[in-house]
Design a protein around this nucleic acid. Sequence first.
RNA 1: GCACCUGUGGUGAAAUGGAUAUCACGACUGACUUCGGAUCAGUUAUUCUAGGUUCGAGUCCUGGCAGGUGCACCA
Length: 574
Amino acid sequence: MTIAETIQQSIQKALESLNISDVSFVVEHPSDLDHGDYATNVALAASKSTQKNPREVAEMIVNEIKKQVIPEISDITIAGPGFINFTLAPEFFNQSIAEILDHEKDFGNVSAHAGKKILVEHSSPNLFKPFHIGHMMNNAIGESLTRLMQSSGADVTTMSFPSDISLGIAKAVVTATEYYPDQESWNNFISMPDGFKDILISMGHWYVSGTAKYENDESFQLKVKDATNKLFNKIPSRELEVYEFCKKINIEYFEEITKQLGSHFDSYIYESESGEVGKKIVLEHTPSIFTESEGAIVYIPDESKKNLNTSVFINSQGNPTYDAKDLGLLSMKFEIHHPDVSVFVTDHEQIPHFNIVLDAAEKIHPEWKEKSIHVPHGRMSFKGQKMSSRLGGVPLAADMIDAVSEEVSEASAERDIDEKTKSDIAIAAIKFSILRAKPGMNINFDPETSLSFEGDSGPYLQYTHARIQTLIEKGKEQGINSELKSGVEVSELEKIMYRFPEVVELAITEYAPNYIVTYLLEVARSFNSFYGSHKIIDTDNREVSAHRIAIARSAQIIIKNGLWMLGINAPDRM
RNA sequence: GCACCUGUGGUGAAAUGGAUAUCACGACUGACUUCGGAUCAGUUAUUCUAGGUUCGAGUCCUGGCAGGUGCACCA
């Protein structure tokens, strides 16, 4: 039983002996540590039914609780409008430090989803749009959610849903065949030296210029229509050949960059596959759920659902739109992986789209909606420029990492840091600025504050971790190793460290990594304050010094584990 | 037009319906000083607005205002 549950029970007992019933109350951490370690609003909640003033009720309850013996509690006070505050005994904190040191890597793992199967889909790329900073945002959140789910005791499968077929892609393919009309010029193009990245960039250009040309060029439109047919139906042709090649190198690139960002994908479902499945499902449920309209097949939501619009699932050409593709995806996810919870991360502009798809899906298979968790994310702006992949000119993820890494080099010129660490710091800076805000919010990446070792930043957390590492090593040199001593004054740091698993649990149930970020900052700040006011390595007072090293080591474990949950590495030296 | 999301110090963010709205950056006072670039105390807010529910509202409800996004054959 946790200490919070113990307190909860003791209050319940007190209420029973006072004959007060039907009161709902909470036991929580007060916002201010001066108010103790736990607080309850029970007296405020009970004041109405007892017709007494809250402080009076509080006094009665406290008297009852004091009759029970709870060794972990050293003090109970009444404060403010009638809150009852509990202060924990020093032994409790020593015990919790011992627990952190003992569990080490596992500290923070909880059992919120023990025994469950969870599927996480994120970082879904578009084959002709290179991995840009929007994908990076999606990846940061998706990867962190993946790791949080792993920390929840679940069996986690990760997947990505590459957009490999669409009208837009056909436009890009036709544009490519216009640039390189015959086999020879195409072969020259793809074999050019250092071609990999150039090809990817060209693909992005084809996508953008193809979209623009389609607007008002009728002969181009006809070609695209023809190509769409060839691609959807896999008819052997130059278009299909160009397409297959581009698809292959884009997936290779995708795996490379997501690996650099710390992600791994267990499986892929392609839009070209889910489109077929989706189309079949839609046809099977027409006209019962879907309706024919102007040659297309559409979904018309119930009139009571004002926030949903009618949407086309199969266009008049007979091809599935992205609504049908996502419907097919849902069905495949459940058929292949049988998840208890299916999490997926997308840009927030897709919220209305998924509301429609899930509404239709619910009518086909209620669990498809019930078990799905849609986590939308906002957009990242960079130097004030809003990104929009359609318009081009979007910073690529790789370029951004390179640019930030360079800034790291400049900022730490006098320190000898290897390339891997530099990239760890750069990625930490970027991921931190994304994950500190709750998912769904737009964020503004400012390289200057994001790279600062002071203030709220990823590198600040990494730096705190690395500094503790040298402290511990320095202690070892002096023959002082981490060892707890009783009777040492309890620090503020200790009063927040034991809460880590609770924070993890909250982040998991809310699908919100930002709780971890906020908490880690609190730990780091609190450690720095501890560090500033206590001499940690102290050869004149070896026992207290050993105790403080134990505390520092605990903070280091929490920072490391927490950063891991954010998808951020914590180097020992930087 | 309809729908969804967001509005918190100069800036960027935080706050399961709880106590004096928290933190960082910047600016301004002052203390202390370097186990790795600290740390500590203070100044900087009508939480967009008008009502409502509640013992208690930044948080929930209703109406405004402002910004973002989405509304059928693109994804």
